[in-house]
């Protein structure tokens, strides 16, 4: 029984993003692993190290450059990778991505599939659940802890208002891992060296070949900066001047008494 982690390569968080029609201009961006997915990879590695699964397998879908995301995961310690090669634009439809991933997961003797809760770029937050539904596997989202118990999986999942649900899942199971569930490791130099010898399988799934396929369930129509309903008054200037301007605004706006040199 193996653990399979689903990862996505996304634009670096600190990039300057420019909307261009239905999506952003992706021509000059750097890419890295979706932050949420690092927690899924770490959870897979911890399960393997505890002897709960045999292999930890990483799967991604994306263009040739996405192989770098697989390499990073292999350097972190994953055993092997599978790369579904497709145009980046094909990733816009979570259903077709899930369908392609499900086809691969089915052949991996997966006891547990781990996805990040959502992708930092599109934020659809559903690929894990769609894979679970398509493969009829049990499922939980927003998972902060994972443990095997009596041949089942026990997970903790986040609810609103600082409450936690403890849920038992029969195997095989898919979980979407929430950030903070663990402390993702960084690749060691040794890990990077070892990763070069680890196998990566390349597959070109027909369902992802054409981004504009009429089979798409969700289409991206437009991306734009939000219109500000209530726009903030913006203060500028030297820090001490800004501070002096803030104090009367806080006093009248918040209606609180301020002490010290605030007068």
């Amino acid at each position: 029984m193996n653990a399979v982690a689903l990862v996505k390569q996304v634009p670096d968080r600190n990039s300057v993003f420019r909307p261009a029609g239905p999506w952003i201009d992706e021509s000059s961006l750097g890419y890295g692993i979706n932050d949420y997915d690092r927690y899924a990879v770490e959870a897979a590695l911890e399960l393997r190290e505890a002897g709960a699964v045999k292999q930890a397998v990483v799967v991604t879908a994306g263009p040739d450059e996405a192989s770098q995301a697989i390499r990073t995961c292999l350097a972190m310690g994953m055993d092997r990778g599978i790369h579904l090669v497709c145009p980046r634009a094909s990733l816009a439809d979570p259903f077709r991505v899930a369908k392609a991933l499900a086809g691969v997961v089915r052949a991996q003797d997966a006891g547990i599939v781990l996805a990040g809760l959502l992708a930092e770029d599109s934020g659809h937050g559903q690929v894990g659940g769609l894979v679970a539904g398509l493969l009829d596997m049990s499922w939980a989202s927003a998972v902060t802890a994972v443990r095997f118990r009596d041949g089942k999986l026990e997970v903790e999942r986040e609810l609103e208002s600082s409450r936690v649900a403890v849920v038992e899942l029969e195997l095989p199971a898919v979980v979407a891992v929430q950030t903070g569930a663990n402390t993702p490791r960084y690749a060691s130099l040794r890990g990077i060296m070892a990763s070069r010898r680890k196998p990566v399988e390349r597959i070109e799934p027909p369902e992802l070949a054409n981004p504009d396929s009429c089979d798409a369930r969700i289409r991206s129509l437009r991306l734009a900066k939000p219109e500000r309903a209530a726009s903030a008054e913006i203060l500028e200037g030297a820090p001490d001047d800004v501070a002096a301007a803030l104090i009367p605004r806080i006093r009248s706006g918040a209606g609180i008494v301020l002490g010290g040199g605030a007068s």
Binding site: P226, R228, A229, A230, S231, A232, E233, I234, L235, E236, P239, D240, V242, A243, A244, L246, I247, R249, I250, G253, L258, G259, G260, G261, A262
Partner: peptide, 30 residues
Amino acid sequence: PIFGAADVGVVADVKDILPALTRALTGADG
């Protein structure tokens, strides 16, 4: 997006603005 939810915004490094505001509130710099 936080500026869309704010009444007053300061586009600057927090490490510059916060100490200045604390000083102004406590009168630490006289």
